[in-house]
């Protein structure tokens, strides 16, 4: 809840379209949010919701057929849209905005020592001697809970969890203002995940970086984030401080996700799935992307894409029926509501 000060990242109306043989695919449309300093901003969504495309566009890693548009996209007041690729690469990428990718295995070159790769990435951006860089890398390994002598090892000698922590150390190496973590614990065992998440929580106080955490795991995002955005069909459906999102969910998709997600604290609970499958996003956005699967749809939902409604305390919902939320919440708990 640190968004009161000047935001680190401020985005208005961001869209990404891919040109394909079947026409343009609007992978991301009309996304707006701010990330405050020291804040963990969670973005949750299922496969194809546009969360990966969104971060790729922020880091300028889109493939050639993708184009990004935005009304505003600023990092600490600097306009990223006006910046050339060259300037972005030399001043922002990795130094100011770093990335912890989903697959740390593929991100390390197997033929170089992990330590060498970390100091190379430091020295590429900043004037720094080898010894100084090595010392800093050892300090970072300590921060993420790895022994410094592991720096001399090769990536294949690391376990999955160790590689992910080494990746986090590398992302921290230049004191970036913003770290984007893309599914940082997906595919790891639960005890390993627990240790990494705990470490991320512990270092938050020390590093003064904002974090964007992207995952499909609602439980991970609930535990880690200050604010959460729920994405579906390339758009943010609901954005709220995390406690508020769980206490006062407004969007039918959020209600559906809560039903579908099992909790270890409530194992007897009957799980309810959302019928249907996500939209293909081909062609222009002319209706609410969730409309075909929504049990509460009304005539207006298919006519136009609903505008974002602010329901108070920074809680935003992209839905026409925010006035009727009490009834939706009651009905959403019934399995019969979600039968297609």
């Amino acid at each position: 809840m640190a968004a009161t000060t000047e935001p680190v990242l401020s985005i208005r109306n961001l869209g990404v379209a891919y040109e394909t043989s079947q026409g343009p695919v609007h992978a991301v449309s009309d996304v707006s949010f701010d990330v405050g300093a020291d804040e963990v901003f969670g973005i949750a969504g299922e496969s194809g919701c546009g969360k990966s495309t969104l971060i790729r566009s922020l880091l300028r890693l889109l493939p050639n057929n993708g184009t990004m548009t935005a009304e505003r996209c600023t990092y600490k007041g600097r306009d990223l849209m006006a910046m050339s690729d060259e300037a972005f690469r030399s001043t922002i990428q990795w130094q100011e905005i770093s990335l912890v990718p989903q697959s740390a295995m593929a991100s390390f070159n197997p033929v170089y020592r992990v330590g060498d790769q970390i100091i190379e990435s430091m020295r590429a951006h900043r004037r720094m001697g080898r010894a100084e860089a090595w010392e800093r890398a050892a300090g970072l390994f300590d921060v993420v809970g790895l022994q410094a002598d592991l720096l001399r090892n090769y990536p294949h000698e690391f376990s999955g969890g160790m590689r992910q922590r080494a990746m986090i150390a590398m992302a921290l190496s230049l004191d970036p203002g913003l770290i984007i973590m893309d599914e940082p614990t997906t595919g790891l065992d639960v005890l390993v995940q627990e240790r990494i998440l705990r470490r991320i929580r512990e270092i938050r106080a020390e590093i003064h970086s904002a974090i964007i955490l992207i995952t499909h795991d609602i439980a991970v995002i609930a535990e880690m984030s200050d604010r959460i955005a729920i994405m579906y069909g390339g758009e943010i459906m609901e954005l709220a401080p995390s406690v508020d999102l769980f206490e006062n969910p407004h969007h039918p998709y959020t209600l559906g996700l809560e039903n579908a997600f099992p909790s270890i604290r409530n194992v007897g609970k009957d799980l309810i799935s959302i019928p249907g499958s996500p939209p293909t996003l081909v062609g222009p956005v002319e209706s609410c992307p969730f409309e075909p699967r929504c049990p509460f749809r009304i005539d207006g939902c298919a006519a136009a894409n609903p505008a974002v409604v602010d329901v108070g305390d920074g809680h935003q919902v992209r839905c026409l029926q925010t006035g009727d939320v009490a009834r939706m919440r009651t009905l959403a708990r019934e399995k019969s509501t979600w039968r297609s």
């Binding site: 005890l191 390993v192 991970v220 609930a222 984030s225 995390s242 206490e247 604290r265």
Partner: peptide, 25 residues
Amino acid sequence: RALIGAVPVPDPRTRRAIPNIRGDI
């Protein structure tokens, strides 16, 4: 106990105890 304690809970209001085990698998 450790395994169940490590499962994240989809509710930001709950706090879990830290699993009390050492080392890696």
